[in-house]
Design a protein around this nucleic acid. Structure first.
Lengths: 227, 227
DNA sequence: CTTGCGCTCAATGTATACACGAAACATCAG
DNA sequence: CTGATGTTTCGTGTATACATTGAGCGCAAG
């Protein structure tokens, strides 16, 4: 496998898992010795991560970006626009099979959610598969690219949220409704159900992610200028 | 200025202007001698262009991507989702000044459009400024990033379209309505007016871009699988 | 004549040396 | 004591040499 790809996957995974928290300085030489490759593939990886918005180049090394509450709100605004549209398109262009399979798995979700950590992982796999199925059914490469970007950041936020079991059970039901709407070919319902789901998710995310994940306690100036 | 930046700007500009048509092979060494820099910044530029979707890495060099009719439809689907949302947000969060200025300039559009090539360029500057004003007013960095991506491809498609004067005059009117809706704080109208505008633009683009811009006449398999 | 194998070479992937620039620090003048 | 300025140093920017891979092509066997 290409070293640049490995470096990118590794760094991205570590950022998403929170191993590399916001504010962490990623220097090319330092990372190249740590990952056992030369600076060139590390540079490539850092550039890709910067394009993803996961890191930000500064004068002294590139640093892992922070996520403010305003960022969460902004991300959900974009998610709503993209996912609502994607769900609507999926309802019109779907192949039934993958959604039927996902519906069955979602019906199992309440049981999974009672199983603790492992079940939680399984549950999120179902949700991710649903996202992929919608993306594929929407059959729109541009939309797909935009969705991949928001899902990247969503995965990062997901880790920050405390996972209230009640909320997750409700979310599973919302997902089930979205799938039903898609299978019924009801684009408008699929779109609106997605809107509702994201609205509730955002409310929960804001409530359960009490503090911004920032590395440096100093210089925290997060003005919530979004109403 | 950084060499990698220059290489990126140059190549991107040439692709957008059609100097480098779809299918053109961009090899690292070849481009590095042409641009007068080493392979390293050229590599960086090509990677960024690939992330933008303007080129595609293949086994033998990276090639400039083609634009099919299906791509145009797909791009407009995404544009509609993004720009309608952005217009709605702009209506709620706007500062009046920039939109008042743009409204005045749009009122001048019919005169500009009678002036031929130079006026056309001026007209598109107004439209681009409107896009930027909406982006800024929406105050959403994630949405902004997605918008930059679609506007990149839109600029490429714009070059392919024959510019019907009647259509452009109508489009100017549609833009004026969007601006009025934003200034009135009517998010729903701004959003729907954007939808209408893009719908009409797409119809015109499909009618006036008769052939796919492809380099190799052989192996053209553009199934319009989007209804 | 067709098909499969293996060679060749060209283009990308990687490593590393050198150049450049900016930030931090120390030193000195006011 | 404070401010400015020169110096130093660390990190990225660029160039280039070397490694690797895989696509194209020719040759030989069926």
């Amino acid at each position: 496998m290409r070293a640049g790809e490995r470096a990118y996957d590794t760094l991205r995974g570590e950022i998403l898992d929170g191993v590399l928290g916001p504010g962490t300085v990623l220097q090319e030489v330092e990372q190249s010795v740590r990952l056992g490759v030369s600076r060139t593939p590390v540079r490539e990886a850092l550039r890709r991560l910067a394009a993803d918005g996961l890191v930000e180049p500064t004068a002294r090394g590139t640093i892992v970006t922070a996520i403010s509450r305003a960022d969460i709100v902004a991300l959900y605004e974009l998610r709503e626009a993209l996912e609502a549209r994607a769900a609507g398109l999926a309802a019109r262009r779907r192949a039934d099979a993958p959604f039927l399979a996902i519906r069955d798995r979602l019906r199992d979700a309440p049981r999974l959610l009672a199983e603790g950590e492992a079940g939680l992982t399984r549950y999120f796999e179902i949700v991710d598969d649903l996202d992929r199925a919608i993306d594929e059914a929407a059959a729109n490469p541009f939309l797909g690219g935009a969705l991949r970007s928001v899902q990247l950041h969503s995965a990062r936020i997901r880790r920050l949220s405390r996972h209230n079991p009640d909320r997750l059970r409700a979310a599973a039901g919302e997902h089930e409704l979205i799938v039903d709407a898609i299978l019924a070919g009801d684009a408008e319902l699929a779109s609106h159900a997605t809107h509702v789901h994201l609205h509730r998710s955002l409310t929960n995310a804001l409530a359960s992610a009490p503090v911004d994940e920032v590395a440096e306690p100093a210089d925290v100036d997060d003005g919530p200028r979004v109403a």
